[in-house]
Computed example of a mutant assay.
Amino acid sequence: MMRVCSASEPAPGRLENEDHVFQYGDLVGVLDGATVPDGFDTGCVHGPTWYVRQLAARIGLATAERPAAALTGNLAAAILAVRADHGDRCDLDHPGTPSATVALLRYGGDHVDYLVLCDSPLVLDLGAQIRVVSDDRLRTAMADLRQKALTVTGAGGVDQATRFRRAVTLQRQQMNRTHGYWVAAANPDAAYHAVAGTLPLRGPERVRRAALLTDGASCAVERFGLFDWRELLDLLTDVGPAELIRQVRLAEANDAQRHPGFKRYDDATAVFCGFDPE
């Protein structure tokens, strides 16, 4: 059996949560909608909150229609369906069209199937080792883009706001492109670039526990270093996802005091899955 518990909170001071967590039968997923920076157009009348909820619903319908199909195929079908849901008022070829990261885990009795697209990692307890399934292409692309922005403008040539706008523009140009990064948006082909696979639920290297995280929760390890991945799973097991988010909020607040003026808060979502041995 698979036991599931979750928590999801918007960033402090924000009314909308652009993360979304869902469960349809044996399928669990988290989505993280891409926040639109102030002053940027998207070519769309919808926002990231609409997109993540619509995509989750379409993933559920695709799963109901084809419960045994590959996760990549069902995600592609869902992205295509949401593309039609936009109607004719949206320019879906716009580089800022709404998008979201995806992390999926499906229970299959003696195995689990997983899929990760963009920077929402999946953490797996395999007994002797902890495996983190991640998609680092956005992180790599952003590092390259920051360097390009500095090369074009010079480290002191323009103010921070101008460099930020240039970096966002360059990032949008790399979305869903070879040598860039892949994310759920309007192009169903992105699903086939996800990191996907299958792991056993029986035997010595079986999956014992799993966590699906948006980057607003995984930052507990990756940014703040509050604990390692095994300790994160232990916290989720013993106390629950809400406690993880509480500790992230404390770390964000402390960081904001040391570095005022920067965005220090994010929507945060954590899902814990426990697997009972048969």
Rank of each mutant, 00 (worst) to 15 (best):
L170N: 04
L199P: 07
N187R: 14
Q160S: 12
G197K: 02
R208H: 07
R202K: 09
A149F: 00
A211S: 09
D189T: 11
R177L: 01
R209N: 06
L199W: 00
A191W: 02
L213A: 13
T162D: 02
R177C: 06
R202P: 02
A167I: 07
L199H: 02
K148H: 06
W182L: 05
T214S: 15
G216Q: 09
C219W: 05
D159C: 09
F164H: 14
A185I: 06
R163Q: 13
N176D: 08
R177H: 07
G180A: 07
L199C: 06
P204A: 10
D215M: 15
V168G: 04
R177V: 04
F164Q: 14
A149E: 07
R166K: 07
V207E: 00
V183Q: 07
H193R: 14
V168F: 01
Y181D: 00
T178V: 13
Q174G: 00
L150V: 10
R172C: 01
G154D: 08
N187L: 09
W182C: 02
P204C: 01
R209D: 09
A194N: 07
R163W: 01
A194Q: 05
G157M: 04
A196K: 11
H193Q: 12
A217N: 13
G180K: 04
T162L: 12
A191S: 10
S218E: 12
D189S: 13
A211G: 03
N176T: 09
T214G: 10
G156Y: 09
G197T: 03
P188M: 07
D159Q: 05
R209C: 00
V158F: 04
Q174N: 00
A155G: 12
C219T: 14
V183W: 00
H193A: 09
L170D: 04
A194R: 03
V183K: 02
R163N: 11
R172G: 01
A196T: 14
A186G: 03
V168C: 02
